[in-house]
Simulated assay, not measured.
Amino acid sequence: MVKRDSAADLVGLLTADDRNLAESWVAEVSKSLSGRVGRAELDRELRELYEALVEALRQGAADVHSEQMSEVRALLTELSRNRARQGFSPSETAISVFALKRVLEPVLENGSVDEIRAYVRLARVLDGLGLFTIETYTQTRDELITAQAEQLLELSTPVVRLWDGVIAVPLVGTLDSARTQVVMEKLLQALVDTGSEQAIIDITGVPAVDTQVAQHLLKTIVAARLMGAECTVSGISPQIAQTIVALGIEFDGIVTKASLADALKLALRRSGVDMVAHTGGQR
């Protein structure tokens, strides 16, 4: 815990010329961010942070994790999350805290011994707050990246209704455990929503199939069968066929077709749809 006189020194350092200090802080951060944050927004953020910091130090806050720093942490969390969403870098985010040290640097040249000691103690507090800001920023960026990855998985795994009672999942790119789980969930939900009894999994756009990918496909097909749907795998290229044979992967009981068109014809026949071929010139 900071001693009462030490806390008073820190507060005195920040409030000796608080109006000019806060303005200088805003100006310093604004210059570092090259005007990418509106001056009014920046002024509001930093003045709220300034007031909360002064109050926390007045109550004897020792470091960023002190109970008295709860409001400061809340404001820094909001600031860090906003900067992360706006695309700022970690250093551009942390400068909002570290710039206060720069504004106070004249104390080192013209201040008394007590003021210099207070500056050093305050610098340690600000270092902790800066690290907290970076940690919060990093956590937010990780959350954003995870959310974007999930959205990409959703977009890259469409379920298409080809005919009444027939749906297809055209897959493009590499399959892994996470994506296959999405494929299974979307396929099963589509079977329920559409009442389809025929499903086609098209892997024309999948560059390679290994044991893990094959096992994922098999699990998806078994799950669809439990829902009462028949599955057909289409788009198996000669290279993938050779790989499956070489790996000894068993596709017993699973119907495969070379193309999506062939798989659709089979699904329509299973659904009882009569198909009539038309030759050119006939109407």
Rank of each mutant, 00 (worst) to 15 (best):
residue 239 Q to A: 15
residue 193 D to C: 02
residue 61 A to Y: 01
residue 150 E to D: 15
residue 114 D to L: 13
residue 237 S to Q: 03
residue 123 A to R: 03
residue 118 A to W: 06
residue 71 E to V: 13
residue 50 Y to V: 03
residue 165 G to E: 02
residue 239 Q to C: 11
residue 177 S to M: 08
residue 62 A to T: 11
residue 46 L to E: 12
residue 118 A to S: 14
residue 239 Q to I: 12
residue 196 S to W: 07
residue 177 S to V: 07
residue 223 A to G: 02
residue 246 A to R: 13
residue 116 I to S: 11
residue 21 L to T: 14
residue 259 S to E: 07
residue 271 S to R: 15
residue 99 A to M: 14
residue 22 A to E: 11
residue 17 D to V: 02
residue 69 M to G: 01
residue 259 S to Q: 03
residue 200 I to Y: 03
residue 33 L to A: 12
residue 250 E to K: 10
residue 193 D to R: 06
residue 252 D to R: 10
residue 171 L to A: 15
residue 5 D to F: 03
residue 227 M to E: 12
residue 205 G to C: 07
residue 8 A to P: 06
residue 76 L to M: 13
residue 163 W to N: 04
residue 161 R to F: 07
residue 27 A to C: 13
residue 67 E to P: 06
residue 31 K to A: 15
residue 121 R to E: 13
residue 228 G to E: 10
residue 233 V to G: 04
residue 136 T to M: 00
residue 241 A to V: 08
residue 43 D to Q: 08
residue 171 L to G: 00
residue 163 W to M: 02
residue 165 G to Y: 00
residue 59 Q to A: 03
residue 264 L to Y: 10
residue 177 S to D: 12
residue 57 L to E: 07
residue 278 H to M: 15
residue 107 V to F: 07
residue 43 D to A: 15
residue 182 V to L: 10
residue 48 E to T: 06
residue 102 R to H: 05
residue 64 V to A: 02
residue 146 T to C: 12
residue 19 R to Y: 11
residue 16 A to L: 07
residue 254 I to K: 08
residue 161 R to E: 14
residue 188 L to Q: 02
residue 227 M to Y: 03
residue 90 P to A: 09
residue 133 T to S: 01
residue 82 N to P: 00
residue 83 R to T: 05
residue 165 G to H: 05
residue 191 L to E: 08
residue 120 V to W: 05
residue 69 M to I: 09
residue 44 R to A: 10
residue 221 I to E: 14
residue 222 V to T: 12
residue 83 R to W: 00
residue 8 A to R: 09
